[in-house]
Nucleic acid binder design. Structure first.
Length: 279
DNA sequence: ATTAATGTTCAGAA
DNA sequence: TTTCTGAACATTAA
């Protein structure tokens, strides 16, 4: 489920061990799973990145970006169950990619592990990353948004605000879990049409976005019941214990203590909210 | 034993 | 143009 806080956590953990290192090799792990989507073909990418240095490791919405010395960029999309690991993979079977790193360092390998195999790897040639950044692909990052950005993107659509928050073309980084958490803190009903939000509500939404995402990053992300999400050293996150509403249907609301948190389905995804606090 | 559900994204249809 | 549906996949719970 990696959303922004989980991807930020993996990036912060791998960055000190990967940025500045040279890639000795990139290869697919031998496994019986179907191969993940790789564009262009892995052997093309492998030949291209061999012996190149990684100049920076960064996050773009829910994606991990490895900047390469020649200006190309490797973009990893973890999607549902992808993990970037420096050590201790949860199992060997779902290892997908292995980077062999040159030079001294605590870790000599970086892995992409993905249980469901929906993750992707893509090489962007120098300059091509701009097409991903354009607003037709990815909106502004949730942790660089201004209130004015929120007003602009919400004004564009009549979809329910919860559904709009999941649209990466509008805002990059928010996923199903944090959308519910943000709306609860902002006291906004998830079914309100995005374009009907008042200036006051947009301000609350903006403040809640930063508060929730930054808090979740401090906890190093959320590991849900199935335990799939792990950080780069295969440790669980801690934010699931602080969730206000997500996966807490039938519990009492932590804010009002009176109403019961309900689960509804929007765009085929679960939404959790308090009907008393969120109007 | 089927069926539904799970964090994401996108192509194609409505 | 905008919005909705289903598919990609692996695994578990009902």
């Amino acid at each position: 489920m990696p959303e922004l806080p989980e991807v930020e956590t993996m990036v912060r953990q791998i960055r000190p061990h990967v940025a500045g290192r040279r890639i000795r090799a990139l290869r697919a792990c031998r496994t019986k799973c179907r191969p993940i989507s790789i564009t262009p073909a892995l052997k093309t990418i492998a030949a291209r990145v061999k012996d190149q240095s990684v100049t920076a490791v960064r996050r773009l919405g829910k994606r991990v970006v490895l900047d390469l010395a020649d200006g190309a960029n490797l973009v990893i999309e973890p999607r549902m169950t992808g993990l970037m690991l420096l050590a201790d993979p949860p199992d060997v079977h779902h290892l997908r990619l292995e980077w062999e790193l040159d030079g001294p360092g605590e870790y000599s390998r970086l892995w992409f592990w993905d249980q469901r195999g929906l993750g992707t790897l893509r090489l962007y040639q120098p300059g091509e990353l701009a097409e991903l950044l354009g607003s037709h692909r990815l909106g502004p990052d949730a942790l660089s948004l201004t209130v004015a950005d929120y007003r602009r993107v919400c004004g564009k659509t009549a979809r329910p605000i919860k559904v709009a928050l999941l649209d990466q073309k509008l805002i990059a980084g928010i996923g199903n879990l944090y959308a519910s958490e943000i709306l609860h803190l902002a006291k906004i009903h998830p079914e309100l049409p995005a374009k009907t939000l008042t200036a006051r509500q947009l301000e609350r939404l903006h403040a809640a976005t930063y508060a929730i995402l930054e808090e979740a990053i401090r906890y190093e992300g959320s590991t849900l019941g199935d335990g799939t999400y792990r950080n780069a050293l295969n440790k669980a996150g801690g934010y699931q214990n602080a969730h206000r509403v997500y996966a807490r249907a039938d519990e009492s609301c932590p804010t009002c203590g009176k109403a019961i948190i309900v689960r509804i389905v929007q765009a085929q995804r679960s939404t959790f909210f308090c009907g008393r606090c969120q109007k």
